[in-house]
């Protein structure tokens, strides 16, 4: 049993630092071999989890939620009221989706999400997070100079737009609902879903216009 001893954990980290090989692939290979030998998991189950998060659980889920919100005002209202329940209706519930909140971009507001303390992310809705989301540069700077960071992503904010940064410090998780771009009147759910990027749902992209994206 653990004693939840913080300094003991730090001591073990120092031992690991000296004892483990430098190559992360070798470290993880040894850990996998160990947990399999101990009977914690079958290797085929690990394969299935990799497949699940490579092919099935990913940002297309969030994109569909956003696209549906563009097409159906009542869906949009429910999404903004209780995004976790909407995710469950669509069968998208899972890791870090139980306390999901949707925050909408408007002509006056741009939302952007971070976890400054670790790397909290709505995995079940957006899949694996990009490396930059977990980087020290993003986590340190987006709360302090969001406009400079957004400019690095190519986001140019019009004069009247305020930035709202959401730091995921508890178990709430955030999904940014970007604005429906002009020029998509009459588009199908599938067409609209394809327009919505992962970065737009984190908030590091704003204009999803097909003319900007070159997708038209």
């Amino acid at each position: 049993m653990t004693t939840f001893d913080s300094d003991e954990a730090a001591k073990v980290h120092r031992q690991l630092h000296h004892a483990l090989p430098s190559d992360p692939a070798l470290r993880v290979k040894a850990l996998e071999s160990l947990v399999v030998e101990r009977g914690m998991v079958a290797p085929e189950t690990l394969d299935a989890w990799v497949e699940a998060y490579s092919e099935h659980i990913g940002p297309k889920r969030g994109a569909e939620m956003v696209a549906r919100s563009w097409l159906d005002p009542s869906f949009r209202a429910r999404l903004l009221e209780d995004a976790a329940a909407v995710a469950e209706e669509l069968g998208f519930q899972g890791h870090a989706s139980a306390h999901l909140k949707a925050v909408e971009n408007t002509d006056r507001i741009h939302n952007v999400v971070v976890c400054t303390l670790c790397s909290c992310y709505p995995f079940s809705i957006l899949g694996m997070s990009p490396s930059w989301y977990k980087s020290a540069a993003y986590r340190s700077r987006i709360v302090r100079e969001p406009r400079k960071v957004l400019a690095e992503f190519g986001v140019e904010l019009p004069e009247g737009v305020a930035v709202r940064v959401w730091d995921s410090t508890a178990e709430l998780r955030y999904l940014v609902v970007p604005q429906r771009p002009a020029g998509t009147e009459g588009w199908s759910l599938e067409q609209l879903t394809a327009l919505v990027t992962r970065n737009a749902m984190i908030g590091t992209e704003r204009d999803l216009s097909p003319y900007v994206k070159g997708a038209a």
């Binding site: 692939a25 993880v28 990799v50 899949g127």
Partner: peptide
């Protein structure tokens, strides 16, 4: 979603 195989393995280990 994963840039190296070992990242994917670690994610899967952590789930199990």
């Amino acid at each position: 979603p994963f840039h190296h195989d070992w990242e994917a393995r670690m994610w899967a280990i952590a789930r199990n």
